[in-house]
Amino acid sequence: MSTSNRPERVGQEIQAAMGRMLTRGELKDPRIGYITITGVKVSPDLKTARIYYSMMGSEQERKETHKGLEAAKGFIRRQITEAVNMRVSPEVFFTFDESLERGDRIERLLREVKEKEGG
């Protein structure tokens, strides 16, 4: 078996496991808002996983959600290790994914330009 795409496959499984946790309401911290897991990057040695998430809301709501995710890190690690059937529990890092927000902002700007041009 080739190990070159294993981190990618494990990342997809972690993303699915996180999605299931969120859908089932397993993360009980009230600070965690409605988030979407946009991707997971796993290191080649499978020891670290960077989980990218996105959400709508104010900067304060984002900070609170990040604090909630950090507080739930141990629980999330255990759940991921069990769901993905890994021997070693990966260190988990959460990163806010700004790409959706940036795309929305670009879309709004393009619409404004079109309206100003009378299109």
Rank of each mutant, 00 (worst) to 15 (best):
S89R: 10
G25W: 09
M55G: 15
R105K: 13
M86L: 14
V113Y: 13
R31K: 05
A72P: 08
E107P: 02
P44E: 12
E91K: 05
M55F: 12
K67N: 11
K28Y: 10
R20V: 01
R87M: 05
G103H: 05
G74S: 15
M1K: 09
A71Y: 04
L27E: 11
D45T: 09
G39W: 08
K28H: 13
P7H: 10
E82Q: 14
A72L: 08
T23A: 12
I32P: 06
K63M: 05
G103R: 03
T36K: 11
I51H: 12
H66M: 14
V10D: 00
S4I: 10
R78K: 15
T23W: 03
G11V: 06
Y34Q: 15
I80F: 02
T38R: 06
E98A: 12
Q60T: 08
G33T: 03
G25K: 01
R77I: 01
S4Y: 12
I76C: 12
T23E: 14
R20G: 00
L69V: 03
L110I: 05
M21T: 07
K63Y: 04
R62Q: 13
A71F: 01
R108I: 08
F94M: 04
F93N: 03
L109E: 02
V40P: 00
A49C: 07
A71E: 06
Q15Y: 03
G39Q: 01
R87W: 11
Q60Y: 07
L110Q: 13
L22F: 03
T23Y: 10
V92W: 00
Q15R: 12
K47W: 03
F96P: 00
P7W: 07
R9K: 13
S99Y: 03
R78W: 04
M55A: 10
T81E: 01
V113I: 14
G39D: 07
P44M: 05
